[in-house]
Write a protein that binds this DNA or RNA. Structure first.
Length: 685
DNA sequence: CACGCTTATATTTTT
DNA sequence: TATAAGCGTG
C-alpha cells in the first residue's frame, strides 16, 4: 500500500490548518478568512476523525446549505479508505432537526409524520387566519402588514429570542400600531400548527432545542462524539443554544468555523455575538486563525482588504496572499444598464476566448432582479447561464396547487392545502371552501377528513357539483391502492386532474403543465412521498439548473448568482454588477448603521469570490420601476464602499460618453435634492 | 357568494 | 411587476 491518506493530506495543509484538523478534544473556534481553505480543512478534519477511529455516525457536520454538506463530505470521502463518510450526519440545522425529530419527537409529544412548512406555507397559513380574524382598521390608515411581513416578524421573534414589541420597534417600526392584531394572529397560528401536525422552519429549531432537555435529547447529545459547525458567523442565538444543549459537560468536542467579516444574515437574526461569545460559552476553547489566502491574486486581495478595512469592528485578522502577480481588478463605469450588460458580455466572451470557460466565471449582484436586463442580453447572444437565488419555482401558483394536492394525501389535516385546493374548483370561493372544510370534520380530532370527503360528498351549489366530483374521483383513485403509488405516479395523476383547470385559469398553461412534468421528474428520485415533500421544503430547488434536465449539464454555462447564494463559492473570473449606492448598499438598508455594515460585508463577500480576475461594474444611469409620479430614471453614485483610496487600487475604465460624465459632474439630481431638503426644512421647522 | 374588473401600493437577501 | 383590496354584477 502507498502512504496512508493522512500523510498525503498533511502535506497539503499549512501549520494552522493542520492544527485545526488534528487538534484533540474540547471546544475549538476556527476563525477562517475568505479563501483560506476552510472547506478543505473541515473535510480533512472529518477524514482525520474517521481515521482516528471515530465511527462516522457519531460525527455531526452542520452546514449552511445542503450543497455545502454534500461538497465537504464528498471531499472527505476521497481521503478515507472505504466509503465511510456516507454515515456522517451532515446537513443544515433545519434538515438535521427534521431528521432527529422524526426519530425522537415523541418525547416532545410530536407525531413522527409531521409535515414541514416552508416560508411560503407559513405565509399562507398566516393569511388564512387573517381572513378569519379580519383585523379591523379605518379606511385611511395604512394597510395591515402583509403576510410575508407577518412571517418575517414571527421568525425574527423566534430566532432572535426577542419579544414582539422589541422586534416591532427595532425592525418593523411601521407595524407597531398593529401589535394587537399581530399578536392575535400569532396565537392562533401556533394553535393551528399544533392541531394540524405541521412544523414550520422555526419550530424545527425550537423543538430541537426542547429535545435537549429530555432524556432522549441527552441520548442524542451523547450519540455525537464530535460536532462541527461551518459558517458559524451566520448562526443565530437559537442555534447557539441548540449547540449548548448538544454538548453536555462531559462531551464538549465542538469545532465551529466562521469569519465575522463575512456575516451577511443578520436579517435572519444571525448574530456575530455567537462567534465573539464562543470562548465564554465554551470555556477553555482553543482559538485557531487561518489567514493564508490561497484563492485570490494579490491585487484582488488588496482591494478586498481595503474595502473591509473600513468596517466598524471586526476580529483581528490579516489575510495575506500565497499567490503573487495577477492583474489589477477593473472598475468599469458605464453610461447605463444596457451598456453595463453589453460590457459584461464582452468581458465574459473575451475571457472565454482566452481559455476561461463560462463555468469558471460568475456574475454577482445584490438582488435577484438586478440581473434581469443582463439575462435578456445573454439570451440574445446565446450565452447559456444558470441562475442561483431569487428563483421562485415553488412559489408559482401552479406548483403550489399541485403540491397542495400532494400534501393532502400525506396530511389530510393540512387546512391551508384544503383551502387552496377547493378554490381551484369552479363555483367555489373562500366561503364555500371554508364551509366544506368544516363539513369534512377537519377540526375534529381522530377523524380522517380525506376519507370523509371521499365517502360523503359535501353539499355545494349546482355549479360546483361537477368539479367537486372530479376532485373526489381523483382522491379516490389515489387512495384506493393499499400500497400507495410512488410520488411521481401520484403527481402524474394530479396533473391529469389539473390540466383542464390550468387551461381555463392560467396564461400559458402548456408551460405550466411542463413544469409539473419537471416536478414529476424530480419526484422520480424519491420513493417516499413524505420524504419528497420535506426534502422540497428543506432543500428547495435554488437554481435553474436544479430543474433543468441533464442535457443542460453537459453544456458550458455561466453562473449568475445573488451574493448571498454565492457564499462559499469561488470562480476564476468574477463580475460584480450594479456597484451603485442604492443597490449595494441596498437603499432599504440605509439609515441603520448596523445594516450598512452588513451591506459592506456583503460587498466584501462578493469581491473575495474571485481567483484571477475581478470586474466591478457601475452604471451612471439606471431605470427604477415607476413609483408614484417620480421620474423613473436616476443618476447613480458609485457605491460608498469604494472611496477614492480604494478606487485607486483598481484599473479604472469608462465606456460612458464624455457628456454623460459631465452631467455626472453637475449632478442635477443632487441639485434637486438640495431644493427638496430646503423645502422639507420649512415644514419640519 | 363567486368572479371579473379596477385601483392602490410596495420595498431584499434564505433555511 | 405582482399582488392585495374594493366594487359591481349575475
Amino acid at each position: 500500500m502507498f502512504a496512508s491518506p493522512v500523510a498525503s493530506w498533511q502535506e497539503s495543509l499549512n501549520p494552522a490548518q493542520l492544527e485545526a484538523v488534528t487538534c484533540g478534544d474540547g471546544p475549538v473556534l476556527v476563525i477562517a478568512g475568505a479563501g483560506t481553505g476552510k472547506t478543505w480543512t473541515l473535510a480533512c478534519r472529518v477524514a482525520y476523525l474517521i481515521e482516528q477511529g471515530v465511527p462516522p455516525e457519531r460525527i455531526l457536520l452542520l452546514t449552511f446549505s445542503r450543497r455545502a454538506a454534500k461538497e465537504m463530505l464528498s471531499r472527505a470521502d476521497r481521503l478515507v479508505l472505504g466509503n465511510r463518510t456516507g454515515k456522517v450526519w451532515g446537513g443544515t440545522f433545519h434538515a438535521i432537526a427534521n431528521r432527529l425529530l422524526r426519530l425522537y419527537g415523541r418525547a416532545l409529544g410530536l407525531s413522527p409524520d409531521f409535515t414541514v412548512l416552508d416560508q411560503a406555507d407559513m405565509a399562507d397559513l398566516m393569511d388564512f387566519i387573517r381572513g378569519e380574524q379580519h383585523p379591523t382598521r379605518d379606511k385611511h390608515e395604512r394597510r395591515f402588514p402583509r403576510k410575508d411581513t407577518l412571517v418575517s416578524i414571527y421568525s425574527r421573534m423566534v430566532n432572535a429570542e426577542e419579544g414582539l414589541s422589541t422586534v416591532l420597534e427595532s425592525a418593523f417600526p411601521w407595524c407597531t400600531d398593529d401589535a394587537d392584531g399581530i399578536r392575535a394572529i400569532f396565537a392562533e397560528y401556533t394553535r393551528r400548527k399544533r392541531a394540524q401536525n405541521v412544523l414550520d422552519y422555526d419550530d424545527l429549531l425550537l423543538f430541537w432545542r426542547a429535545l435537549g432537555t429530555t432524556p432522549a435529547g441527552q441520548e442524542v447529545a451523547h450519540q455525537f462524539e464530535h460536532v462541527l459547525v461551518d459558517e458559524y458567523q451566520d448562526t443565530n442565538p437559537l442555534q447557539a443554544q441548540i449547540l449548548q444543549s448538544l454538548r453536555p459537560a462531559d462531551c464538549r468536542n465542538l469545532m465551529v468555523v466562521g469569519d465575522d467579516a463575512q456575516s451577511i444574515y443578520a436579517f435572519r437574526a444571525a448574530s456575530i455575538r455567537n462567534i465573539l461569545d464562543f470562548p465564554d460559552q465554551f470555556p477553555g476553547a482553543r482559538r485557531i486563525t487561518l489567514e493564508q489566502n490561497y484563492r485570490s491574486t494579490k491585487p484582488i486581495l488588496d482591494v478586498s482588504n481595503a474595502v473591509i478595512a473600513y468596517a466598524r469592528e471586526r476580529f483581528p485578522k490579516n489575510l495575506w496572499p500565497v499567490r503573487s502577480g495577477g492583474a489589477r481588478p477593473v472598475l468599469l463605469t458605464c453610461s447605463d444598464e444596457a451598456e453595463q450588460a453589453n460590457n459584461v458580455c464582452e468581458q465574459i466572451l473575451e475571457h472565454r476566448e482566452q481559455g476561461t470557460s463560462l463555468h469558471q466565471q460568475a456574475v454577482l449582484f445584490r438582488t435577484g432582479h438586478h440581473s434581469d436586463l443582463l439575462e435578456l442580453e445573454l439570451t440574445r447572444r446565446n450565452i447559456p447561464f444558470v441562475k442561483f437565488g431569487g428563483l421562485k419555482f415553488l412559489e408559482s401558483a401552479h406548483i403550489k396547487d399541485v403540491l397542495a394536492l400532494l400534501r393532502l394525501l400525506e396530511n389530510p389535516h393540512d387546512e391551508v392545502s384544503w383551502f387552496r385546493v377547493l378554490q381551484l374548483l369552479d363555483g367555489i370561493g373562500p366561503a364555500g371552501a371554508r364551509s366544506i372544510i368544516t363539513a369534512i370534520g377537519l377540526r375534529q380530532a381522530g377523524t380522517d377528513p380525506l376519507k370523509t370527503f371521499i365517502a360523503t360528498p359535501p353539499q355545494v351549489n349546482q355549479a360546483a357539483q361537477e368539479p367537486l366530483e372530479a376532485l373526489r374521483q381523483m382522491f379516490a383513485d389515489l387512495t384506493s391502492n393499499e400500497e400507495g403509488l410512488p410520488p411521481s405516479a401520484e403527481i402524474s395523476r394530479i396533473r391529469q386532474f389539473c390540466e383542464p383547470i390550468f387551461q381555463q385559469r392560467y396564461s400559458s398553461p402548456q408551460a405550466r403543465l411542463q413544469d409539473i412534468e419537471q416536478l414529476e421528474h424530480v419526484a422520480g428520485a424519491h420513493s417516499s412521498r413524505g420524504r419528497f415533500l420535506s426534502d422540497l421544503a428543506l432543500d428547495p430547488p435554488n437554481s435553474t439548473s436544479d430543474l433543468a434536465g441533464p442535457p443542460l449539464l453537459d453544456e458550458d454555462y455561466l453562473i449568475l448568482s445573488t451574493v448571498h447564494s454565492a457564499k462559499g463559492g469561488e470562480w476564476d473570473v468574477v463580475h460584480v454588477i450594479h456597484a451603485a449606492d442604492g443597490m449595494i448598499p441596498s437603499d432599504m438598508s440605509t439609515g441603520d448603521k448596523e445594516a450598512i455594515e452588513e451591506e459592506r460585508r456583503l460587498f466584501y463577500v462578493a469581491l473575495t469570490r474571485a481567483r484571477d480576475n475581478l470586474y466591478v461594474y457601475f452604471a451612471l444611469r439606471f431605470y427604477r420601476r415607476p413609483r408614484g409620479l417620480d421620474d423613473a430614471h436616476h443618476f447613480a453614485q458609485l457605491t460608498r464602499f469604494l472611496p477614492e483610496p480604494v478606487q485607486s487600487l483598481f484599473d479604472r475604465r469608462t465606456t460612458a460618453a464624455p457628456e454623460q460624465l459631465l452631467a455626472l459632474e453637475q449632478r442635477p439630481a443632487k441639485a434637486r435634492a438640495t431644493v427638496d431638503a430646503l423645502l422639507s426644512a420649512l415644514w419640519n421647522a
